[in-house]
Nucleic acid binder design. Structure first.
Lengths: 138, 138
DNA sequence: TTAAGTGCAAATTATTTGCAGTAAG
DNA sequence: CTTACTGCAAATAATTTGCACTTAA
């Protein structure tokens, strides 16, 4: 299991041509080690790495998340003005945002379809369509 | 025209039971004075009020926008992690976000319809569905 | 008169950056 | 070796807050 997680992380980095440093490997293993996609903030990932006994500075977590995004390994998702969330899943898909816990998760996307999307104004093209379903306690 | 803008602002505040101070009236007139809906950031509204010759401190612009939101007069729209945008239009509608100019506008909503929206998880209810269409130069 | 609103400047929060040291190719 | 990466601490940027002062009701 450990080995697999490490390998997944290593391959993930290699696939993007990023230099596999100790810290990047640690973060990559935490992010994609189990094959699941994950939603993190810089703070939460930093906490995760601390729990895992890895020493990575918060600044490096920030820089690394940016690097992963630029390399096309992750996407930044904007849901809460105050924090940045990063998602390991790369396709365009809707999210649930839990307003009370400030958590971000994937929304089951089976049937979702956006109809009648307005056309992009002249000279522009749609870069992405963000759909955030905000949840509050019933 | 001036008079109408003033009146619109005054009514708008009165409708929410907010005390009509000089600064709030000034901002309200700028926001809803022409009957159009408007998208602003604290900074942009502060700049607008300065241009209009009104003296309102930036802190008050922030506090006032918050007050307007809490009073149900405006909505905060999250599109860019770094700034908060405020919209005078209150119904749930999609937005265009111009990635190059960082501007926010309403998207023509005629035909837009979201099909197959996933159900809210148990104990939760959908509070709002944010749709942001990100535009980049073609 | 009196509680709400305002303005400043200082405080917070999230994030970035400069730079000296460390490690990957 | 050489350049990219890391860590820390200091710098920024957006926003909030404490507190004395002003004003609408």
């Amino acid at each position: 299991m450990q080995v697999t997680a490490q390998k997944r992380g290593t391959d993930w980095l290699a696939g993007a041509g990023l230099r596999p440093t100790r810290q990047r490997l640690a973060l990559a293993a935490l992010l994609v080690g189990d094959g699941e996609n994950r939603h993190v903030t810089a703070e939460s990932l930093h906490a995760l790495s601390a729990e895992a006994g890895e020493k990575v500075s918060l600044a490096t977590v920030y820089n690394t998340l940016r690097a992963f995004c630029e390399a096309g390994l992750m996407n930044e998702v904007v849901v809460d003005g105050s924090k940045s969330y990063f998602d390991t899943r790369m396709d365009d898909h809707p999210h649930f945002y839990w307003e009370d816990s400030h958590a971000l998760t994937d929304a089951p996307t089976e049937a979702l379809r956006i109809e009648g999307l307005p056309e992009a104004p002249a000279g522009m093209q749609v870069s992405r369509v963000d759909v955030v379903i905000r949840l509050k306690r019933a």
